[in-house]
């Protein structure tokens, strides 16, 4: 009974005219209904507007750049790793770039290597394993940027997702949020730890140069260009060689699309790509919640103010003096 009335009050008239009325009604509040009401207040506020926050579709920057990786072309030479290491002036790796023994383990990008190439079995043709280059995918609506409470990430109109170390306090929620587990935190630094990840050679492409890896690839596995053009190119390759490629451009729609695109001869699942991602940007999943916060702020004082008023009236044993003190606040 009371539950429904309180709920109605909240949605129709949170305060004002209904105050008197509701105060009278909820004076009947039993002590035990304290719990159900407060939980209900929280629950309705938290559950209600989850659908209300849908924003207009964001199509991404029309002229932005991207990269297309063609796994059928990659030969696993690791030239891209070497070039990345050089253009970013990273420390020398433990094992040299021509040491193929690194393929025996599963490596992952981190603060010391912004891109790594892993080897995967090719079930169709065991003699020709598949090599997968891994780095930041430069999402069109990056979850890392959504996650960061200090807004240290920026999606640039050119395509790269960049990061400002001067703002970061190192909570690593961006790492939790990234659907591809990409940002690498420099856990070994005590004083100046920071996120390290591929920035699609933002400085170089602004100067008209190619990203380091794309320039170095001898096999034609990496194509840099406008994302729109790369999508056309990818479609063309798949259409011309339907026997060679699986019919999927990874990154076209995943989490709202990424600037880095992939085509492959083996299903992406077998290369360790997450295939359970929604097509909409991840920010859409938290918008609804974020929009409930102002609702809580505006309705709770009214709800709890009413309850306070009602229960005070309902307790005649309480001396008057204390009421006054409570009211001053």
């Amino acid at each position: 009974m009371i539950k429904i009335k309180i709920k109605k009050n909240r949605s129709e008239d949170p305060g004002g005219g209904a105050a008197q009325d509701a105060a009278g009604r909820s004076a009947r509040l039993s002590r035990r209904s304290f719990l159900s009401i407060s939980m209900l207040a929280g629950c309705t506020a938290l559950g209600l507007p989850a659908r209300a926050g849908a924003a207009p579709e964001f199509e991404g920057w029309p002229k932005s750049y991207g990269m297309l990786t063609d796994f059928t072309a990659c030969v696993g030479c690791r030239s891209c790793e070497r070039a990345c290491n050089e253009v970013n002036r990273m420390p020398a790796p433990e094992k040299p770039f021509d040491d193929a023994s690194v393929f025996n383990e599963r490596r992952w990008p981190n603060a010391k290597a912004l891109t790594v190439v892993n080897r995967y079995e090719n079930p169709g043709d065991p003699s020709r394993p598949v090599y997968r280059k891994i780095q930041c995918n430069h999402c069109l609506e990056p979850a890392c940027a959504t996650a960061c409470p200090i807004h240290a990430y920026t999606k640039t109109p050119e395509g790269p997702v960049i990061y400002n170390e001067k703002l970061c306090f190192g909570c690593r929620y961006c790492v939790i949020g990234c659907p591809f587990n990409i940002p690498g935190y420099d856990y070994e630094s005590a004083l100046q730890p920071k996120i390290m990840k591929c920035i699609l050679c933002y400085g170089r492409i602004k100067k008209g140069q190619l990203p380091g890896c794309a320039e170095a690839c001898p096999a034609g596995a990496l194509t840099f260009g406008k994302r729109a053009d790369l999508l056309k190119l990818a479609r063309k390759r798949i259409a011309e060689h339907p026997d060679k490629y699986v019919s999927h451009i990874y990154g076209e729609h995943e989490v709202g699309g990424t600037s880095w695109l992939y085509i492959s001869g083996v299903p992406f699942e077998q290369l360790g790509f997450p295939t359970n991602l929604p097509k909409k940007p991840l920010i859409e999943l938290t918008k609804g919640y974020l929009s409930t916060v102002p609702v809580i702020f505006t309705t709770f004082p009214a709800i709890f103010g009413l309850i306070y008023a009602a229960t005070r009236k309902g307790d005649p044993t309480e001396p008057e003096r204390q009421h006054k003190e409570g009211n001053n606040g």
Binding site: A147, H151, L167, Y173, L290
Partner: peptide
């Protein structure tokens, strides 16, 4: 920093 230096209001962690 999230309070005074730069705000990331789209972040739940900010909240």
């Amino acid at each position: 920093y999230p309070m005074l230096v730069n705000l990331g209001p789209s972040s739940v962690l900010f909240i």
